[in-house]
């Protein structure tokens, strides 16, 4: 197996151009190392860990710029993430063990494009954008367009994720990330639900409701019908019930060793309700009537 440690993004990109499908990019390694052990070794390994400045977390253009090599624990430790992007912070905090959080990178979690990837539904809800770089140039694209399927992204075999831009959510928003698992952070989520909303001026209705779903479709998804159903309305028990069912209908979960598709649908329903109710309560100070 060939091995490279490019020192710059352009060096990395030319290696990917050269080796194409044979190349596997490795950053933290928490997924790639398991593949090396249990699947066939890749033809070559391109270790991007030593490219400088790709792990920065800083305020930029009305949001936060996150370098793809930032570890999950660095996100947790970052003041700006904790204070301004609590949704992402909650996902990072429930992301596996501390040992893994010290190693795994957000870029790795994104590029793995597992539907259950812990940070993905939150990034969709935060309407973050990927900075995607190829040897012939860079572009940004919303994560909604970035994920193509399980393990598939718009990077293909020749692109690199070089940055993540997360706009600051609207002032006064409330957001929750709910992960469904038996052992909490330690498991891969059976379902992950991210909910974010604001309240209108007199706190009588929810505005700009966003719902993101993980592990229940080929990619992480938003639940636009549910968002439209709830936005602009006061949340009562009937609407909450309707929203849960709507959200479940927007998911298309599969059955695997972790749970059945049917059960995942029930959990999407339950956690959407729970997330909306928590937002309602935090934003209005009222219980759902």
């Amino acid at each position: 197996m060939d091995y490279f440690e490019p020192k710059t993004v352009s060096e990395a990109l030319s290696l990917l151009d050269q080796h194409g499908e044979q190349a596997e990019v490795i950053a933290g390694g928490t997924d790639v190392m398991v593949d090396i052990k249990y699947k066939d070794e890749p033809g070559c390994l391109v270790n991007i860990k030593r490219i400088p400045d790709l792990n920065a977390i800083r305020e930029s253009n009305g949001g936060v710029h996150i370098g793809p090599l930032a570890t999950i624990h660095e996100l947790e430790e970052s003041d700006i993430v904790r204070e301004r992007l609590p949704l992402l912070w909650q996902a990072a905090h429930q992301f596996a063990s501390l040992q893994i959080r010290n190693t795994a990178t957000i870029g790795g979690n994104i590029c793995r494009a597992s539907p259950s990837g812990e940070t993905l539904a939150p990034l969709l809800v935060l309407e973050a954008e990927a900075e995607v770089t190829f040897s012939d140039g860079a572009r940004t694209e919303p994560f909604g367009a970035f994920f193509k399927g399980p393990g598939q992204t718009s990077l293909g075999s020749r692109g690199l994720l070089t940055g993540i831009s997360v706009p600051f959510p609207a002032a006064g928003n409330h957001a929750v990330y709910l992960k469904h698992a038996v052992r909490g952070p330690m498991d891969i989520a059976m379902v992950g639900v991210a909910v974010m909303a604001t309240a209108n001026a007199d706190k009588s209705a929810l505005d700009d409701v966003r719902v993101g779903l993980g592990a229940v479709a080929p990619t992480p998804i938003r639940a636009p019908k549910t968002e439209a159903l709830v936005s602009g309305k006061a949340l009562d028990a009937a609407l909450l019930k309707e929203a849960g069912a709507c959200s479940a209908s927007e998911s298309s979960p599969i059955t695997d060793q972790r749970s059945s598709g049917e059960y995942r649908g029930w959990i999407v329903d339950a956690l959407t309700r729970r997330g909306l109710a928590q937002c309602w309560q935090a934003l209005t100070g009222k219980e759902v009537a």
Binding site: Y3, E5, I26, G29, T30, V32, M33, V34, L45, N47, K49, H73, S97, L98, Q99, I100, N102, T103
Partner: peptide, 12 residues
């Protein structure tokens, strides 16, 4: 920092 050395590349 504590890490799991089974999923860290030796070269790192």
């Amino acid at each position: 920092k504590p890490v799991n050395s089974c999923v860290v590349l030796g070269a790192d």
